[in-house]
Computed example of a mutant assay.
Amino acid sequence: MSHWRRIRSLRRSLPALALAVTAVAAAMAPVTASAAPDESAADQSATSSGWNDYSCKPSAQHPRPVVLVHGTLGNSVDNWLGFAPYLVDRGYCVFSLDYGQLPGVPTFYGLGPIADSAKQLSAYVDRVRTATGAAKVDIVGHSQGGMMPRYYLKFLGGAAKVNALVGLAPTNHGTTLSGLTKLLDYFPGAADVLAKHTPGLTDQVVGSAFLTRLNEGGDTVPGVRYTVISTKYDEVATPYRAQFLSGSDVKNVVVQDLCPSDLSEHVTIAMTDRVAFHEAVNALDPEHATPTTC
């Protein structure tokens, strides 16, 4: 693409970004993330589908409860309508939380500062451990929810309480959002507006202060097994290889390497992709793993 064609393409994109920035600024009051939200409604809804049942006791076959961590703009129920029942049907005790809520913004979570969200995860893991009697949990997270637990593991003592972290399309090293984040440079003050009103978004932009601190000194901590499950068709956590982790106990998987016809993108890999589901279960129970195919 020539220089002038790039300029024309950029100009066509600017109104959409300007509208998004303006909408965020108008809709969000200048507030910080609230404390852990009331989870009673989510608990009731999920329990009716077989998860968030605090009377569940892990079996000898699956001795650790699984904590599901939704992605940005997701919530504890909708993000897991496919995968949570999949785990329950296989005998796991399954739990999910809402985190990162901004006051006045219902339904859509994961917008608060990620460091604060990690504290909410820490409290929730303790709640699950107390209810189930399990010494450790396994965590499966989608998008931000696959990356945010790494802060908990690294800085909040989570490594002693977590056996494995499985990330479905996690934003481990940030995202360019298919190049759209670069447009912020052309709007003076736009990045500051987004950081002020939706810090959970800007914390995930490539090169953010949050990600710089998170990844300093290595991607992983000892004692935790890490699995990253990605799709090459991801249009949100881009480039998709930036999702991968480096470390001694890490497995990075691309679903198309297991099933070339898999067309899942960023959302469907966590909601409907049985290839990703099967590989996630393999990561939770590697001693009984079976080949993942189409």
Rank of each mutant, 00 (worst) to 15 (best):
W4T: 14
S13Q: 15
A16T: 13
V21I: 15
T22V: 13
A29E: 13
A29V: 08
V31L: 13
T32V: 12
D38R: 01
S40D: 13
A46S: 08
S48A: 15
G50S: 07
W51A: 07
Y54S: 06
C56N: 02
K57H: 13
K57C: 07
S59A: 06
Q61R: 13
V66S: 05
V77W: 04
V77M: 02
N79T: 15
W80M: 00
F83W: 03
L87D: 07
V88I: 06
L97F: 01
Y99A: 01
P106M: 08
T107F: 08
G110T: 05
G110M: 01
A118R: 01
Q120F: 07
T132R: 06
A134F: 06
A135M: 03
A135P: 00
V137Y: 01
V137Q: 03
D138A: 05
D138W: 01
I139H: 08
Q144K: 08
G145N: 07
G146N: 02
M147Q: 14
F155E: 12
F155H: 09
K161Y: 09
N163L: 00
V166H: 01
G167I: 08
T171Q: 11
H173T: 07
G174E: 05
G174S: 05
T176C: 02
L180D: 10
D185K: 09
P188W: 01
P188L: 00
A191C: 09
D192S: 12
L201Q: 11
G207D: 06
A209R: 10
E216D: 14
G217C: 07
G218E: 02
D219K: 00
V221F: 02
R225T: 14
T227G: 06
V228K: 05
V228W: 09
T231D: 03
Y233G: 05
Y233C: 01
Y240K: 01
Y240S: 12
A242Y: 12
A242E: 13
N252P: 01
L258M: 03
I269Y: 04
R274T: 15
R274V: 14
F277L: 07
N282R: 10
T292C: 14
